[in-house]
Amino acid sequence: MSRTSTPVVAHWFAGEGADFRLLGTRCSACAAVFFPREDAFCRNPGCAGGELVEAPLSRRGRVWSYTDGRYRPPSPYVSDPELPWEPYTLIAVELAAERMVVLGQGVPGLSVADLEVGMEMEVVPGVLNEDDETTWTTWHWRPVGVGA
């Protein structure tokens, strides 16, 4: 039986390989960009509002901050309570063009010892969890030039 690939959050990312992108929205009136996406109204307090259109975000940015998660996080994160807990790396990346910071996990095997502020990162497809029927997809940050 093959698994169905399902985004853990719909409409936040799309594509594969070099075409993989986080998806935000851009206000047509003031050009403000939002991630997570905003589909109801422009959150810019100085804007009278405009149409919000889907906007693929930059694939690359620079490490703004990072830490490791040494606790078992709440849902939608899924982990088997019967298995020992494995820390994971959280990375805040400032996107190159949008000048906004997006938080995400590092690729599996990446630790805080591998990172430094200012390091160039790229967004890549990732897997949050798998069960018998579904592969739950997400995004990960990976240092540019590593595992490409």
Results as ranks from 00 to 15, higher is better:
Thr67Tyr: 06
Arg70Thr: 02
Glu82Leu: 03
Pro81Gln: 03
Leu90Gly: 00
Tyr66His: 09
Trp85Asn: 07
Arg72Trp: 01
Pro74Glu: 11
Thr89Asn: 01
Leu83Asp: 11
Ser79Asn: 13
Arg70Phe: 04
Ser75Asn: 06
Asp68Ser: 13
Leu57Ile: 05
Tyr88Thr: 06
Tyr66Pro: 15
Pro74Gln: 13
Arg60Lys: 12
Ser79Pro: 08
Pro74His: 10
Arg59Glu: 14
Leu83Arg: 10
Leu83Thr: 07
Arg72Phe: 05
Ser65Gly: 14
Pro87Glu: 03
Arg59Pro: 13
Pro73Arg: 07
Arg72Met: 06
Leu83Gly: 04
Tyr88Cys: 02
Pro74Val: 13
Asp68Arg: 08
Arg70Ser: 01
Tyr66Trp: 12
Arg70Ala: 03
Leu90Cys: 04
Arg62Ala: 13
Tyr71Ser: 15
Asp68Trp: 12
Ala55Asp: 07
Asp68Lys: 07
Trp64His: 15
Pro81His: 10
Asp80Asn: 12
Glu86Ser: 09
Leu83His: 06
Ser58Pro: 07
Ser58Cys: 15
Pro84Gln: 02
Arg62Trp: 11
Arg70Asn: 11
Thr89Ala: 07
Trp64Cys: 04
Val63Phe: 08
Ser65Thr: 13
Tyr71Phe: 15
Arg62Met: 12
Pro73Phe: 05
Thr89Pro: 02
Leu83Tyr: 01
Ala55Cys: 15
Ser65Phe: 08
Thr89Leu: 06
Glu82Arg: 03
Val63Ala: 08
Gly69Ala: 15
Gly69Gln: 15
Asp80Gln: 07
Trp64Ile: 09
Thr89His: 06
Pro81Lys: 04
Leu57Tyr: 08
Trp64Asp: 09
Gly61Val: 10
Pro56Val: 13
Gly61Leu: 11
Pro84Cys: 05
Val63Pro: 03
Ala55Asn: 11
Val78Gly: 06
Thr67Gln: 11
Val78Arg: 12
Pro56Phe: 12
Asp80Pro: 02
Arg60Phe: 13
Trp85Gly: 00
Ser79Ala: 13
Pro76Ile: 05
Arg72Cys: 05
Glu82His: 03
Pro84Thr: 02
Thr89Tyr: 01
Asp68Gly: 10
Trp64Thr: 05
Glu82Ser: 06
Trp64Val: 07
Arg59Ala: 15
Arg72Val: 04
Pro81Arg: 04
Asp68Cys: 07
Pro81Tyr: 01
Tyr77Pro: 00
Pro56Ala: 08
Arg60Gly: 14
Thr89Gln: 04
Pro87Gly: 08
Pro74Arg: 10
Arg59Asp: 10
Tyr77Asp: 00
Ser58His: 08
Trp85Leu: 09
Pro73Trp: 10
Arg60Cys: 15
Ser58Ala: 12
Asp68His: 14
Thr67His: 07
Ser75Ala: 13
Pro76Gly: 06
